[in-house]
Structure formats: structure tokens, C-alpha cells
Design a protein around this nucleic acid. Sequence first.
DNA 1: CAATTGTTTTTTATAATAATGTACAAATAC
DNA 2: GTATTTGTACATTATTATAAAAAACAATTG
Lengths: 300, 300
Amino acid sequence: MARSDTRYREAYNQILAYCETLPTAAPIPSETSLAEIAGVSRTVIRRCLARMEELGLISWQGRDKLLLRAPRSEDRIAVPDTPQDKSDLEQRFLDWVLRFDVPANTPLSVAELSRTFDVAQHDLKEFLAGLSRFGLVSRRPQGGWMLLGFTKDFAIELSDFRCVLELNAVTHVAEAPVDHPVWAALAQLRRDHLALKAAIDTDFHEFSKLDERFHLAINSVVKNRFIAEFQKVISLIFHYHYMWDKTEEKHRNAAAIEEHIAIIDALEARDAEAARVAAQRHLRTSKTTLLSSLRHHDLG
Amino acid sequence: MARSDTRYREAYNQILAYCETLPTAAPIPSETSLAEIAGVSRTVIRRCLARMEELGLISWQGRDKLLLRAPRSEDRIAVPDTPQDKSDLEQRFLDWVLRFDVPANTPLSVAELSRTFDVAQHDLKEFLAGLSRFGLVSRRPQGGWMLLGFTKDFAIELSDFRCVLELNAVTHVAEAPVDHPVWAALAQLRRDHLALKAAIDTDFHEFSKLDERFHLAINSVVKNRFIAEFQKVISLIFHYHYMWDKTEEKHRNAAAIEEHIAIIDALEARDAEAARVAAQRHLRTSKTTLLSSLRHHDLG
DNA sequence: CAATTGTTTTTTATAATAATGTACAAATAC
DNA sequence: GTATTTGTACATTATTATAAAAAACAATTG
């Protein structure tokens, strides 16, 4: 019932690897340098040194530290099974919600989620606390958490917010200098859109990826940590919903290609107002699609 | 080393209070109803009933529960000191950051914050996890948390984001129906602005409150959970910075009053484009003020 | 006196656990 | 019979105690 010593174990192996680069009988750097190398505190380094001394790998007396022999593979220490990386928890969580169509107002069990995602309970709680800032989940009065999205209101507000952000981005693109990388990206996107348009009958399902690339290119012009954070969540949600709503997919995608090209046309003409209008039309279509995909699920 | 029984204690006193409303020898409602009344699970209710039986307050056999005597004040159970309410933690935390001018990249000690704000450590961690979504804090590699804001970049991005949201709000106001409450609010705000303008020499410090009211009125037209969440943080930060940056306060506020009135003028004329332009000018001024207030602190 | 080590104090991460919630079976009342 | 209610078993949560790790400080050493 205390914190794990994984840090010590990983640091130990790291220091061992470092010592392998040293010749035998070489002096070992100061505790502070070793701490720097392993990215841990001196406390951990001293534990490492103590063990190395115990194993006869080094001699250690005050500041005299000598490597007695080259470390062997059996000197390494076992590192306990590291739980799943929690950096992509957001992706996996949203994926789970959308893939299994978890309905609005579902109680979320931290214990269960912790098992399915292989992440410690407190990490999950922190993650949920973060999501609650987006209004995606909330605490329940009797304890625990609840999934709030994806109601109709949620989808409408999300779409509206996306619209606000994306129209802003479009305006920025229109004002971007000629040497900005976005122009090359848009030129390539235009070619890819035209290619897909020509092969739409067979390759229409390829559009999802193209759509993501297109919106990413537009939004990458805006350098803003707040907007970027939101865009991540927004694009994920839209992306998945498009992928799974298969009704009239071919027709929908063909129409979206035209809308994208219209936006590119206006942007390359540096006509900010026309670009905003074109983007607005496209985003309205997106909103309708998202809403109809929700209705679909509700009925199913 | 397990959870506290505060819930039981509070429920117990609540049930006791409920029983006081019953005549003596009255039958007591089902466990489920009592659970509903106290807002807890049946498990807690059964603990309450067990204690009440033990004290001779009730008789309890299967579903026959009778009140034997009226509860007295000494029957109540002690509730341990409840820690500070955590609902206003955000307000108090930002207040602390801004009031003490905590510089960017300061390590935050959960233990210390927990003491100063009288909030449990895990609640604080959840709170910080939420703030990290706004890019205000982040986890440090060696554990713990770090305050990221308020660098120049942060202020610029925050201002820009505010601008995006607020211009959107202004557009919405311009399109609001004539019977929307925002029009009455704006009419009143115009009167208050004119009144303050007349007394600016003495009452200029009153502007801070007026500013907050003005922006709140504009933004209240947009009903969007994502935008609302951000607005809370944004307005708090701007509000405090204005309050504490005393350089040329009178002149600054007089200018801002004119800018506000210009926005109101354009809105009441239902001229969306003019309103956007006026708002843009005002927000640019705000941004400059926020940045100069930061520079001030850096030098001080 | 600058760099390093020795020592102490503080903080953090986390597993253990009692409190609480929840689900379901059994019993009761209507 | 069926709708409530209770009894019971099980799952989940909140919270604490605590070892691990970091940080602060004092004492050495070259």
C-alpha cells in the first residue's frame, strides 16, 4: 500500500546500461550526474549504487566509486509489468464510447474501465475529471461518474462550436502568407480530392481519411493551445461518426468532396468571405450528418 | 485507511429530523423510501435503522418499523468537520495564482495546496487534471504538477481565443429576436455606462464590475456548454488582471466605456458587421492591456 | 568555494480497505 | 400472481496509511 518502485528498477537498468559503455575499473560519475542521466532523483541513484555495490559490481566509498567488472545481463533487475500507456487513453476511451454506442447518461464504473483499458484507477479518475471539463462526463451525486454525451443537444452544441473554430481557421488560412506550408498542403489535397472524385464509385470509403487530413490542414494554421485541445476531441468524434454512419455514404462523400473543393477554390483566390460561406455550407452538412447518425442509433 | 462514514452520519441526522415530523408510534416508511429521502443507498439506511433500534428509538423487525419515542437532540450523531466546499475551488485557485503573482513554470505541491485550500489531496489532483485541459497546468516528468500560465504566449493565445468566442457571441446578439432579454440588458448597460462616464473622475474603479456585466450579457446569448465552460475561466483571468493593473486605470476605463458604447450602438442598429468591427477594436485593446500587465509583473 | 556526499524532511503515488452502492433472490402483503 | 419490501451477496468507491521518490539542507571534500 505504497507507491511502486518501478522508477528505481528502470533507473537501475538504465545506469547498468550506462556502465556498460565505461571501461572496467573506470570511475563512476557523481550521484548528481547519474541522476541527470536516468532522469530521477539522487535518492533513487543511491539505491541503485547500493545494490550495485552489494552485487560486487562497483566499489563505493564516499565519492570514490569504481566499476569493478562489466555488467552482465543477469545483473539486470526485473521491471514489473508496466500498465498500458495512458497517453492514448483519450483515443481509446472515445473509441470505446462510440464503437459500442454507449448511450447518454450511462454510469461509468472506474473499476471496470480500469480493467478494460489497463490503466490505474486514479489515472482514470484524473482522465475523467479532465473530460468533465468538456461536459462529456460528470460526477454523480451518489459517487462515481456518468457519461453525458451524446445527446442531440450535445451534438448540436459540439457542431456549433466546431463551426466557430473552423470558420476562424478558414479566415486565418485566407490571410496566410504565400510561403506558408498550408498552400502546398491544399494544392495536394485538391489533387487527392479530384483523384478520389474520379474513382468515387469504388473508393468512396477512402474519403474519411481525406476528410480528416483536410480539416487538419485548415486548423493547423491556427496556433492556439485552447483551440488545439478542443479540435482533438471534436475531430475524433466527427471522424468516428462519419465512419460508422453508412447511410448513403457514397452520395454523401461525393457531395463533401465538392464542398471541400469549393473551400479550396475560395481560399486559393484569397477570398476570405467566399471561403467562410463555403465552409459554413460544408459545416452545416456535417452537422446534419452527425445529427442523423445519432437519430439512427436512437432508433436502432 | 478507508473511506469516511460522513455519508452515514449525515443521513442518520437527516432521517432523525424526518422522524421528528412523525407522530409517536407511527410506522416508518420502507427502506427504499428512506433512501430516497436521504439521497443515499439502502445500505446506509439499514445502518441508520440499526443504530436507531439500538438506541431504543424504534422497534425494527422485518418490515415492521415503529417509532417508539420522539427523537431528542442528544440522539443526533456527530458529523466530522467537513472540509471546505470544493465547488469554488477554481475561483479560489485562480485568485491565489493571480493575487500572489505565481510565476509561470512554478512547481505546484499538491500537499501544500491541499492544506491552503482545505481540500483533500485527490480532489485537488482531479481539479488540476481538469485545468491541464486548459493548458494552465501540466504534469511534471518527475511527478507532481506545474503551473504553466501566464506567459506571454499564454496571454496571446487566451486573448485570441476569447476574441473568437466573443465575436461569435456578438454576431449572435445582432441576430437575436426583439423580445430577447439581451436587449433590455444592453439598454440598462448603456445607461450605466453613461452614468459612469459622467462620474469617471471619481468612480473609475467601478468599471471592473461593469465590464464583467457587459461581457456576461453578450456571451449569455450563446447557449453552448463548451463555450460557457471556457468563458468562466477567461473572464476570471481578465477580470483579475484588470483589477490589479493600476497603470493609467482611469484613462483606460474611460476609453473602454466608449468602446462598449460603440458596440451597443452597432448592436442596437442590428448592424452585425459594424458590431464585429467595434468588438474587435475593444478586444484588441483588452489584449494589449493584458500583455502590458504581464510585462509589468515580469519587470517588478 | 564549488562540487559532491550525507542526512533529514517533505511530497507523491499507490495498494489496501471500510464504507457505500448495486443486483438479485427470498419473503411478504395485497 | 404480482408489486413491494427486505435479506444477502457482491462490486465499486472514497479515503487513508505508507513506502518510494523528491527536495531541502548540512557536512564534507578536493
